[in-house]
């Protein structure tokens, strides 16, 4: 199969995720867009598995990517819950840099 199809689909999903992240008004939508970005990364990894000599490395890379991204999203989920507890608001406008007033 052509590698271009995989990479084109990956880029399409990544662009959809970017558009969603830019236009999101609440953190749930931002979390969903981040998960889609990681989905695009998983898709972009597929051609790596076609190189016979890099099969072990590809496996390790894919496993590290899956676990790291899951951990990252888990931390974000925890942050959303914590933010809701403190501010009672999970809109993106409620997120400010440390000490900055909204």
């Amino acid at each position: 199969m052509q590698v271009a199809f995989v990479l084109a689909a990956s880029v399409a999903i990544l662009m959809v995720a970017y558009t969603m992240a830019i236009s999101s008004r609440d953190l749930i939508r931002l979390l969903i867009s981040l998960e889609l970005m990681f989905g695009a990364v998983f898709l972009a990894l597929i051609p790596l598995f076609s190189i016979r000599s890099l099969l072990d490395e590809s496996f390790i890379l894919a496993v590290i990517t899956i676990f790291t991204s899951s951990s990252e999203l888990l931390v974000l989920i925890g942050t959303i819950v914590k933010l809701d507890r403190i501010k009672k608001d999970i809109t993106t406008t409620s997120i400010v840099a440390g000490g900055e007033l909204p």
Binding site: M1, Q2, V3, A4, L7, A8, S50, R52, L55
Partner: peptide, 11 residues
Amino acid sequence: FYRSSTYIEFQ
């Protein structure tokens, strides 16, 4: 990607 594309096979 399409211009510089190659065919791949999985084992």
